[in-house]
């Protein structure tokens, strides 16, 4: 039996150019569509219809803490009042609410807060107020304060 001719090992050169072209195109596409967006977060609020109309729910033991935000004609914040008492700025509001939460002890989870804002108030102030009352950061940890937040019906338009 004649021996098969031994084939020499041939080096097959693959043409890499088209692949590299495509890969670079892809890379440029993804680089250009990259859009760095600041992270967004939510404040989850549960508001059935009855609640925002100022009607207390049946299981409500304590009256809600009423936070009033007054606006200046240009929409900026004029004053903050908690249950009628004037408060200087959001940091004092946070301290005051933290005190109320500590006093409430175990029933702190039932505390409810009602935001009463002027119609023309800039919405950013509402978020600042919600930030101030819903929690505080202590040593890098979040301590939750008030979870139930409602809105009073809008005052004069």
């Amino acid at each position: 039996m004649p021996a098969l001719p031994r084939r020499r090992l041939e080096k097959v050169a693959i043409n890499m150019t088209p692949m590299i072209d495509v890969v670079f195109q892809l890379m440029i596409f993804f680089m250009l569509t990259l859009n760095i967006i600041a992270p967004e977060g939510d404040f989850d609020v549960r508001m059935p219809l009855g609640k925002s109309a100022g009607q207390p729910t049946e299981d409500l033991q304590v009256p809600p803490i009423k936070v009033r935000l007054d606006a200046q004609p240009d929409g900026s914040l004029a004053s903050i009042r908690v249950d009628g008492r004037p408060v200087e700025g959001f940091s004092e509001l946070r301290q005051l609410v933290a005190g109320l939460v500590d006093d409430a002890g175990a029933s702190a989870g039932d505390l409810e807060l009602e935001l009463d804002c002027d119609y023309d108030l800039d919405y950013a102030n509402v978020i600042s107020a919600i930030t101030a009352v819903s929690g505080r950061i202590d040593d890098g940890r979040l301590i939750e304060m008030i979870k139930k937040i409602t809105f009073a019906p809008p005052s004069a338009e």
């Binding site: 600041a38 992270p39 967004e40 977060g41 939510d42 404040f43 989850d44 609020v45 549960r46 508001m47 059935p48 219809l49 925002s52 978020i127 919600i130 930030t131 809105f151």
Partner: peptide, 19 residues
């Protein structure tokens, strides 16, 4: 929010930039 409540929606997520 009121218009949403009247249509029967209850859950709201007030969105803000995390900073």
């Amino acid at each position: 929010i009121r218009a949403c409540q009247e249509e029967g929606f209850e859950r709201f997520a007030l969105r803000a930039h995390y900073e």
